[in-house]
Computed example of a mutant assay.
Amino acid sequence: MKRARATTEILAIASGGGHWDELMLLRSAFTGRSVVYATTNPQLSMRDNIVDLAVLPDCNRDQVRKSLRCMWASLQLVLQLRPKVVVTTGALPGLFCLIAGRVIGAQTVWVDSIANSDAPSLSGRVARPFTSLWLTQWEHLAGGRRVLYRGALL
């Protein structure tokens, strides 16, 4: 995937499964913007009619080598695209892109999964210092200016 650096406004990323489904619910918010989607499952581009898709290696915190490979690929993607905004619904690949986005000066948005009803996710807690906006989908988990509730996606 080779593209000009100045063309990507938004990098929207999520792991496959529920994280991706929640990201797809945000698609209408990106209308009229230059968006590149990224995920760990290439089949999702056909299912959801995504033209501009980047595929990252899948990983989780228990897979150190895969996580390092995904971290490197995430950094390369963000450096190539230079997005103005990075939006993610998680999980670990989204966290890596969010941190890389913050390092290059992008605005960063973390939307914690609806599945995390008792406490923010581990990735979400790690993401918090790197976010411009951190959203929970559970009103009782909101607190102060750092964790906001603006409704649920599902």
Rank of each mutant, 00 (worst) to 15 (best):
K2R: 14
R3F: 09
A4N: 13
A4V: 12
A4I: 14
A6E: 11
T7N: 10
T8Y: 06
T8H: 09
E9T: 13
I10C: 03
L11Y: 11
G16L: 09
H19A: 01
W20V: 11
W20R: 10
M24F: 09
L25Y: 08
L26D: 00
R27M: 00
S28H: 15
A29W: 12
A29Y: 07
A29C: 10
R33L: 12
V36Y: 00
Y37I: 01
T40I: 07
N41G: 10
P42G: 05
Q43V: 09
L44Y: 11
L44H: 09
S45H: 10
R47P: 08
D48A: 15
D48R: 09
N49E: 14
D52P: 12
L53G: 11
V55I: 11
L56W: 06
D58P: 14
L68W: 06
W72P: 12
W72Y: 15
S74M: 05
S74A: 13
L75F: 13
V85S: 04
V86N: 01
T88D: 01
G90T: 04
A91S: 13
A91D: 10
P93R: 00
G94M: 05
L95V: 06
V103H: 03
G105P: 09
A106G: 01
V109H: 00
W110R: 00
W110P: 04
V111W: 03
V111C: 06
D112P: 10
D112K: 03
S117G: 05
S117K: 05
D118M: 06
D118K: 10
A119P: 00
P120T: 07
S121P: 12
S121F: 05
S123M: 00
P129A: 02
F130Y: 15
T131K: 00
T131L: 03
L133K: 06
L133Q: 07
T136I: 10
E139D: 10
E139L: 13
L141W: 07
G143P: 10
R145N: 13
R146A: 12
Y149C: 09
Y149E: 02
R150L: 15
R150I: 12
R150P: 13
R150D: 09
L153S: 06
L153N: 02
L153P: 11
L153V: 08
L154P: 15
